[in-house]
């Protein structure tokens, strides 16, 4: 469960990025967050990732109150999230397998469990045959699938995808979106931040539109014009 209550975010330079956002996302929902650049999507994402704290208002994700979370708790909170970025952010000197394993290793997962779980996740994202490849040996769409596998590695409750299709061709974009839908069906909350109209309109899910730091529309099966 994700709960924004009148969340305001003002940056030190005076920019008011969010002007009182209230929003509720249930467990297992699939949500598009849309809006033009500068609308406040990035700030919203940063708040969800625990990178920034609200200036006022409350933000609660699961058991964590992000408006008052102490710094040392942030890593624990992030283990409940899986994040996918526009630019994939894979480690170029590690293989597909190692990239996924890395996310598990750095949170102290035993090696035995890593060896068992990574192939299963790679299978979920249809990459079982690429586990020995390096990122520059596979396509953009495949790289994003590796990133998705990595986001799933620590079995998070929520997946946040920040412009996941921004760097890949339309064909591959559909594939990534289908995978995100599949992950959603497995019971995970999926939040996709994007400004790609066609995708949003095609999937007919809940669409939250932000403009100038406020929510201007929140509709299930909504469209993005």
């Amino acid at each position: 469960m994700i709960d924004f209550k009148n969340v305001v975010k003002t940056y030190p330079n005076g920019t008011v990025a969010l002007k009182g956002i209230s929003l509720h996302i249930d467990d297992g929902e699939f949500v598009f967050i849309v809006g033009h650049s500068g609308a406040g999507k990035t700030t919203l994402t940063k708040l969800l990732l625990g990178e920034e704290k609200p200036t006022s208002g409350h933000l609660i994700v699961g058991d964590y109150d992000l408006s008052r979370i102490p710094g040392y708790r942030v890593p624990h909170y992030r283990r409940e999230l899986g994040v996918v970025f526009q630019d994939f952010r894979l480690l170029p000197n590690k293989t597909v397998f190692e990239n996924v394993a890395f996310a598990m290793r750095v949170v102290g997962t035993p090696a035995k469990k890593i060896r068992r779980r990574v192939p299963a996740i790679l299978n979920t994202v249809n990459l079982a045959d690429k586990n020995g490849s390096f990122p520059d040996e596979i396509s953009g769409g495949e790289q994003q699938r590796v990133a998705l596998a990595r986001a799933l590695a620590n079995n998070p409750k929520v997946i946040i995808a920040d412009e996941p299709t921004g760097n890949i061709d339309p064909q591959m974009s559909l594939e990534i979106m289908n995978l995100l839908m599949k992950i959603n069906k497995l019971g995970k909350t999926v939040i996709v931040v994007t400004h790609e109209r066609e995708l949003v309109n095609y999937y007919k899910q809940r669409v939250i539109m932000i403009k100038d730091g406020v929510i201007v529309e929140d509709k299930v099966g909504g469209t993005y014009e």
């Binding site: 890593p75 624990h76 992030r78 283990r79 480690l91 996310a103 750095v106 949170v107 590695a153 620590n154």
Partner: peptide, 17 residues
């Protein structure tokens, strides 16, 4: 840098990093 960034996002603790 890249590695550290990923570690942060997947929730590696500060001391581990």
């Amino acid at each position: 840098k890249r590695e550290i960034e990923i570690m942060r996002y997947v929730g590696a603790s500060k001391w581990f990093i």
